[in-house]
Nucleic acid binder design. Structure first.
Lengths: 155, 155
DNA sequence: AATTTCCCATTTTGTCCCGTTTTGTCCCAT
DNA sequence: ATGGGACAAAACGGGACAAAATGGGAAATT
């Protein structure tokens, strides 16, 4: 809760398809949420890693009432759970990214781990940088952000 | 909170790509927010430096509910975190500007550090002055400013 | 005197590798 | 069909080494 996951690091997959979580991220994660994570893929483009407690809170909402019957919610939950699995940070600070996730997201050798406040995303480095170059933030994007994230001074 | 970052200073990058933060800025920053900063680039044109607490308040909003799944928010967060990193003002008042930020924003030798109330921006001096010349404020801009800015004063 | 610059030593972090364990798969005998 | 044995593949754990980040002393500059 207190710690934000910020910035990005480039790391290598080891022979077995594991990555070492960058120290800053690992410490922040373990302090706030422990060693249990949920790893999945929203689109095959990249891999998402959530602290288990954050994921439970997010996906738990879908259990309220009959929301889980809503078609888009069903579609979403079906996908993320089909692709996903629970993983634990090992004693050396590593996690395994299973084979299908690796293949779909084209993760091999060098990958980029990005902190996104409350979760991590893992990308093929070239694909990520290509995407960012091709689609830079536009004025319309900034307008939208200013609209969506306006709560500058709640307190 | 009490201190505003105002004006601009020209400073030199050291061999390792570090800058010494101008004393006035450094003191204002440390008094209000401590030594932790977040450095990133919204567009490759220049580099933004936020006090960590200011950045967390801004980006923390994206962690609320499922807002971080909104496409524009994802795009924004992905970019700023890919480019960004948390840095700490060291015992000598220095911060590191990493290589990719330096390259993209063409920062070398002498750069301009500008105070923008709650954050700093770092520019290549010539590019900055060129930009200001090429894109002066228009009447339409002033209209927009007059519309938008008064809302900032709820108290 | 105070600040900047240079540079080196220490510590921290990441990488590679190998041995062990677990899991999964295939095939055969009952 | 089904249980089990044997083999193969994937997962896991940890040691040793390499690379990089960090911090600060001391000379140089203002």
């Amino acid at each position: 809760m207190g710690n934000f996951l910020l910035g990005s690091y480039s790391v290598r997959l080891d022979k077995g398809g594991r990555i070492k979580i960058p120290e800053k991220f690992r410490i922040a994660l373990e302090e706030d949420h422990g060693k249990e994570l949920f790893i999945t893929s929203l689109t095959d483009e990249s891999v998402q890693v959530y602290p288990l407690s954050v994921w439970e809170e997010l996906s738990g909402v879908s259990g309220e009432g009959a929301l889980h019957l809503q078609p888009t919610v069903r579609k979403f939950m079906l996908r993320v759970n089909r692709k996903g699995s629970q993983v634990r940070i090992d004693s050396k600070g590593r996690i395994l990214i299973n084979q299908t996730l690796r293949e779909k997201a084209k993760l091999e050798d060098e990958v980029e781990v990005i902190g996104l406040s409350n979760h991590l995303e893992i990308w093929n480095k070239n694909k990520l940088d290509g995407t960012l170059e091709e689609r830079p933030l536009t004025n319309e994007d900034f307008e939208k952000i200013a609209e969506l994230m306006p709560r500058g001074k709640p307190k």
